[in-house]
Design a protein around this nucleic acid. Structure first.
Lengths: 219, 219, 219, 219
DNA sequence: AATGAATGAGCCTTCATTCAT
DNA sequence: TATGAATGAAGGCTCATTCAT
């Protein structure tokens, strides 16, 4: 405020300390749960006095909020969705699945914490349901567009996406290997929702007017 | 033990009290988490003194074990799997999906508790992974048999099952409506893993030239 | 509740423990102030664990309420006022002054605590003002009756009472000797409010119609 | 100190800051009590960092001392007493009463703080008792002189003064209106200690045979 | 079987105080 | 002069657990 010329050295250090506390808190919350991890745990692991935590955060609750703010997965998920837009269905689903795995892997600690807290805190549950609704809306619009283009058969795209996410995210959170699981999953889902005659191998949307190859098989 | 003629009156009452404590503990664990619920909470809700809890259980931990023992979902899931065996793939997958939802709904409180504890207790995590492996083995054997019969195309059946379970169980745990979600999900998965030309409507594998059933929505 | 035949042994002991905690808390609150005295102080002086205090009281605040309930000076002051009613003014004022000193002496610890808290807690201030108003109303009615009987000259009796109380109570709270201070005070106030010609030495109200002795002196 | 020519600009600013801190501390001590107000509270209200408080004061205790030094009511009370000296009793008592109210009103915050601390800090209690003794000595000498002049009857003047102060000061500290309370109080006390036949209206001692002034109300 | 008094460890939080910048 | 990061000692309160009755 009163010092033009960018952050001072001291402010930079304070910011670092703050982030250090947030990151350490996230580690410990993920390991022991929010209730199981103590402020003392966090301070000790960072190597400072307990009191310092309260210099940066009003309460444990506030610390949790700061964690979410800093590590919140909404932005990366949004970016992922944006990057998929306009891609053919086969490629898009694959990008989606692998992307979700990657983002969830990077944020696995936070997701682990949230998964626990959502079950017990109504406000967090509501927040999570809201985010879920937003993401489903955006991603659903993408899949619907692929239906309109004739790549996918008409269906409730929410189901596809929910299934995709529900299958992939826990994998990442628990830390299991993605492959070959995800590739197989994408194949199953794609076959499940592909329009008759859509050939993923082409990586090219078949025009809506294009005559599908003889329905010899569902593949 | 030393009294022939079945349980005495007193033993029956003790059993009832024990179960009452277990059930109430489960309720509270699900509401507030294992850490968030106190022994006093439980005793108060049952209408007894805290001390009594320790007549029936050695510790909070022991109480949690008793809950799992009494409400463990392994048996019903096993029964479900058994009931599906020998059924055609289309029917089997549907039975499986709806059955999983039903069982998970009935046990949603326990599953909610377990979901939280698994993330934080290594022993529980191992236990859960073990159960998962068993269930996947049994159910996988079933799907493999349907592959062998030509109903389903050869694929990693674990993926199908994992996806099914991961999609359905959270639905039940969070308390969302199953339909039309589950029906749609089954349709997608079934199409995704069906052998070419398999006609679910027949409950019989069909020749390659048979027309596939129309999708639910206008294609 | 569920045990006819009066309090059990255990209940009696619990009650004793409770009172012991209240009394010890009062001692310490008076010595160090409510903020200055710690729950540990109290527990230690009683010879129990800190936690036990919270078995009997919800909070430090609740403990303070219990102190007021048990040691509240309203009842004894009311009794004092009742005992004075119908007495001649001279005797009444003297009884009042000495009685207030006695009661305030007996409750000096609580009054000391309240004196401090009133200055800082609006609710307590209001409560105290309310009590003061009640007491002044009752005692004022007494003095007004003595005015009507011609013993005292018409005046704002609230002032007399307020002055009496304000002079006597601090004496008791601080623990100073009452005599000869109180006797002198009563004499001054009595002369200050006596009707011309009222002779306290008589301990008899002069009838309203009685001719006052020649106004040779005010005494 | 080492700079001739009066205080430098910087010294003047420092003095201002110091006084600002003292005044703000007094405000907060009065509002929340010495224990209840924090150094951070004070610094925040002044708009500076906590650390700065420790550039001006060694400790919270030292800050309290500085408050007393700056706002101590001894000087104004002394001035009041000096101004009363030689005045006739009736005028003197009235001046005293109103003057005490005025001074106590001006210093009500400090008096509120002291009232609380005296009850809990032995050193402060001693200090206060010492001040009280001094004031009573001076004011007592004044009243004794009026006794010697025949305006007041011989009596323990300490009692009169104590009663006056005890009645008036709390009024000011709590912030109640002075009138008509103080006027009535003075009248009562004056009648209570006046020599027989003393006529306040004259501001002159009157002979025993002189008719007393009519009471304020119809007697 | 049942009660609830009692314990004691530990948690979150506050706050006066210090100190490097 | 001024800042605010950092410390560390408590303090209020909770809670699983024990035990005499």
């Amino acid at each position: 405020m009163g010092h033009p010329g960018g952050p001072t050295n001291r402010e930079r250090q304070a910011e670092q300390r703050r982030n250090q506390l947030i990151d350490t808190a996230l580690d410990l919350f993920a390991e022991k749960g929010v209730d199981g991890a103590t402020i003392k745990d966090i301070a000790t692991r960072v190597g400072v006095a307990q009191g310092l935590v309260y210099h940066y955060f009003d309460s444990k609750e506030d610390l949790l909020s700061a964690i979410i703010e800093r590590h919140g997965p909404v932005q990366p998920f949004s970016a992922l969705l944006a990057s998929v837009y306009e891609r053919p269905a086969a490629e898009g689903l694959s990008l989606l699945a692998h992307g979700v795995y990657r983002v969830a892997s990077e944020r696995r600690k936070l997701l682990s914490v949230l998964a626990r807290e959502i079950l017990v805190r109504p406000e967090m549950r509501l927040m999570a349901l809201g985010v879920r609704a937003q993401v489903l809306a955006i991603a659903g619009a993408y899949l619907d567009s692929r239906i309109a283009l004739g790549e996918l058969r008409p269906h409730d795209t929410t189901v596809t996406l929910q299934s995709l996410a529900a299958s992939v995210v826990p994998l990442a959170v628990v830390g299991l290997e993605p492959e070959p699981y995800i590739t197989h999953l994408v194949e199953i889902l794609l076959r499940g929702v592909a329009a008759p005659g859509y050939n993923p191998a082409n990586d090219q949307p078949t025009g809506p007017g294009a005559a599908p190859a003889k329905p010899t098989a569902t593949s």
